[in-house]
Design a protein around this nucleic acid. Structure first.
Lengths: 262, 262
DNA sequence: TCTATACGCTGTACAATGTACAGCGTACGA
DNA sequence: TCGTACGCTGTACATTGTACAGCGTATAGA
């Protein structure tokens, strides 16, 4: 199969059974199982945390569990489904701050921070597609928790989903850049700073500042402000502030009373 | 090399020479070249447009050009560099609307639309990392053009870059979802609607609405509103409006006079 | 004009990946 | 007690990027 960075092209029923740990119907015959799904998830997650998504191979996980590669297929239908359950497990383990009664900005900031923490702990979660999210207990609990931060603000159901989608999409896009930086550094041994340090002078030789005045001025100003050309931490602070300002006009129209609404 | 979806781990000098079409220094000896870089770029882009990033293989491009796979390496150092020049060429071909004198919201909306058009024409451009952008003529011209939309609004250089980064990051994140949907459909033959149609009832069986009241209510409301669980077009409209609202508080603080500043 | 050399192009080869398949042995239901 | 379902494994294959060496060509220098 190609490009299994996305939920199974396989049977949704099989995947859901896996996610919700539905016990197999028939009585077990044959040898005892030497492992269980959670052990596989744990090993795979450990590998991917330290070696990145490209380091996640069936052979590598099997080696970690001191088992032959094909053994994994008794616990999981394939690599795509393994990623599904890994992701749901990561969601399940996220910390969920209770911000009831606090102003909505505080509540949404907490949601953003919780996801940011996820992407920091497990950088690979930022780079997998969430087009077809793993519909397991972890993802559902996460969704429920995050929706409560948007509850009681006078938004209708669709708007609640819209706001949450926008917020999470921002945090993920931001984290993806950081994750890419990590992955690239691991694969090429040339760090981002080194790359820009090498490319900068070369670019200056071919780039005519008269032809591209704004690009050269703003580009070098931005490059000087943060160390590199892109500073994810700065972009996060800036973006989150703008985004909350943007949501404010929607939320405070829905609840004219309060910028400090609970 | 693994994961070459990102700019060359190779020599930045070589890549820049390629991007700016620097002529080789020495006099050419030996047979005439049967192709040129632009022909390779064109063929590779055509393949990737129709078959996705996973369809972009050196063998496939070579076949398109009626040439043996290894021949490509006379025109390009490797696949990563090929992607670089493909991306820069796509940037170079983007349409750039002149919106001088128009209100800033119109100008920024035009920038967003131009990028959206790029991601529609070449979906793969939405899924490659822009951590280390191809520093070629296309990318520079694009950057210069987009900065002019933010010029004269009273923002300092770093703020201009911040705003542009945020806007482009939003449009790309949105397009990436659509691109993923396309790619997934091509690889699995089960469309998004079919997948949700299969997963929905199965999920209803394991999901307790009492335990997750908001998730089930809002989830089904959102699912009903758009056809699927995620509607990129709707998310784009919603997100862009919020984002511009968010930038407004920054821009109109910088230029207190005008919400219709030129 | 002759010739050596740089260069375009190609076939072969290798390592890495996911996983299909068949065989071997085990422990439980009958 | 015995047959069978199932856990586990080794082998094998298709697909990828690309290193390497060989072959032939057209030009620079004689």
């Amino acid at each position: 199969m190609r490009a299994p960075d996305v939920t199974s092209g396989g049977d949704p029923a099989r995947t859901l059974a896996l996610l919700w740990r539905e016990p197999s119907t028939a009585a077990r015959r044959g040898p005892q199982r030497g492992l269980n799904l959670d052990a596989v998830i744990e090993a795979a997650t450990a590998v991917t945390d330290t070696e990145g998504l490209t380091g996640l191979t069936m052979r590598r996980v099997a080696q970690e569990l001191r088992v032959s590669p094909m053994t994994l297929y008794t616990y999981v239908p394939g690599k795509a489904e393994l990623l599904d359950v890994m992701l749901d497990a990561a969601y399940a383990r996220m910390s969920r701050t209770d911000t009831t009664g606090q102003p909505w900005r505080v509540r949404l900031t907490a949601v953003a921070e919780e996801n940011r923490a996820l992407f920091t702990t497990h950088p690979w979660t930022a780079t997998v597609s969430t087009l077809r999210p793993p519909l397991g207990p972890g993802a559902i609990a996460k969704y429920e928790h995050e929706l409560t931060a948007l509850d009681g603000l006078g938004l209708d159901d669709v708007e609640m989903d819209d706001c949450l989608t926008l917020l999470l999409s921002f945090v993920q896009a931001n984290a993806r850049v950081a994750a890419d930086a990590h992955a690239t550094a691991r694969l090429t041994t040339v760090t981002d700073e080194q790359w820009w340090a090498a490319a900068g002078p070369l670019l200056a030789r071919v780039l005519d500042p008269a032809a591209y005045p704004l690009a050269s001025r703003v580009g070098s100003a931005a490059g000087a402000a943060h160390g590199s050309a892109h500073d994810p931490a700065h972009a996060y602070e800036f973006g989150l502030r703008r985004l909350l300002d943007g949501l404010a006009t929607l939320i405070e129209r829905a609840t004219p009373a309060a910028s400090g609404n609970s």
